[in-house]
């Protein structure tokens, strides 16, 4: 690029009117003519230094994404495997339980069920009654009232 062309581009650059493509061209031209554009050469050198990116950055990042995908898939598969196994065990236990329990079960009539329940409730009720106090002296007792003294 001729110096005159560089100067024109520099003028545009310092007005903030250049596009990225023109700026790339200008930077390239300045790099090859450092003596004529010393100020720009220093500034552009710094910008270039600052946007240096490590080699193979994109590949490393994509590898990181793939690793995470594998991990997620592995965990998902493992979870699926364990939950399938648990479901299978639960199903087997249920089948075993029902197949062994049903034939031996005795079907009760409603009266029998009621009698058993009444008996059970009575047992609970008796269990909740306070124990008789042997030292208690009954002073008065009739159908509705009981007076005691300890």
């Amino acid at each position: 690029m001729k110096q005159e062309e560089i100067n024109k581009l520099l003028e545009k650059y310092y007005s903030g009117e250049t596009n990225l493509e023109e700026e790339a061209k200008l930077k390239e031209a300045v790099e090859s003519n450092p003596d004529d554009c010393r100020d720009e050469q220093l500034a552009f050198g710094f910008y270039q230094q600052e946007n240096t990116v490590p080699e193979g950055l994109e590949d490393q990042l994509f590898k990181g994404i793939q690793d995470q995908e594998h991990r997620t898939r592995f965990l998902r598969n493992r979870w699926l495997k364990y939950s399938s196994a648990a479901a299978a065990v639960a199903l087997a236990v249920s089948i075993f339980w029902f197949s062994h329990q049903s034939p031996n079960q005795v079907k009760l009539t409603k009266d029998e069920q009621f009698a058993i329940m009444e008996k059970a409730l009575m047992q609970v009720s008796n269990g909740l009654q306070p124990q008789d106090d042997k030292d208690m002296l009954v002073l008065y007792q009739d159908d509705q009232l009981e007076i005691v003294a300890n």
């Binding site: 600052e50 946007n51 990116v53 950055l57 994109e58 490393q60 990042l61 994509f62 990181g64 994404i65």
Partner: peptide
């Protein structure tokens, strides 16, 4: 990632964390 790298480096001001942060962004 190439465009974001200098920006992340400037914001975090820590070279070590740049790649980790960029990896998280890409994920």
């Amino acid at each position: 990632s190439r465009k974001l790298y200098p920006m992340v480096k400037r914001l975090l001001k820590n070279d070590v964390e740049v790649q980790d942060a960029l990896q998280d962004v890409m994920l």
